[in-house]
Amino acid sequence: MASLRDIKSRINSTKKTSQITKAMQMVSASKWSRAESNAKAFVPYMEKIQEVVSSIASGSTDASHPMLATRPVKKTGYLVITSDRGLAGAYNSSVLRNVFQTIKKRHKSEDEYAVIAIGRVGRDFFVSRKMNVELEIVGVSDQPSFTDISELAKSAVGLFSQGTYDELYMYYNHYVSAIQQDVTEKKLLPLTDIATSGKLTSYEFEPSAEDILKVLLPQYAESLIYGALLDGKASEHAARMTAMKNASDNAADLIDSLSLVYNRARQAAITQEITEIVGGVAALE
């Protein structure tokens, strides 16, 4: 049996750990509520732009744009959104496992894919496996603004237009609720599945539908990336909050059971001492 002092020190260290996890849980909870409201603020923009894109793309059949056309696929791009820091439960590992297995399944050689990594954990994962990381961005703030990632989004869309890759998939954790985040794969480019809403307006185009698509489609693709990032951030904070809550709960359980062991051991020591004294007295008589 462990000595009293050993048990005591384990209880103390567990207590200290649980203080940290509790603090992290509270920090994540406040970041999570802000990230969630950011993601909500973005919704009207996304809905509007989707509406306009779909009514232009479906309304005028003669308007064509390279970003709408499907090309033979020689190389595939994967945009992976992870966090910069760990301790967020399965948040990063589930996305990375999913991407890694997909790449291994779909591609035989290095030249058939390129990775765009958002977040330090994802970047390190792909770099350490010597996979082809085309673009990377780390240190995205917890409340990212559009300008923070517009550069990366522009380059990601640009690489598609230049023909570096012929399709682009996006992998991120879709935020469902505080306790559920689903790994989502979304085909970003070419823009083939633009949802058409019921009410379509026929527009005049100034100067022409083609010129408008030139402005509109890159903006649309960039906002999809930004939307995924906001979604991912909300998931990250929710995942970290849940993970830290679990850790605090586990610590409390551990402290309880350790205290029980400690008290038993102390009682056993006292009982032994009494027995020894009584034994000693009996021997003197």
Binding site: Y203, F205, E206, L216
Partner: peptide, 13 residues
């Protein structure tokens, strides 16, 4: 571009 109420539906960059 100036827009008054009752303008024709239009999209412009």
């Amino acid at each position: 571009l100036g827009i008054l109420p009752g303008h024709v539906p239009m999209v412009a960059p």
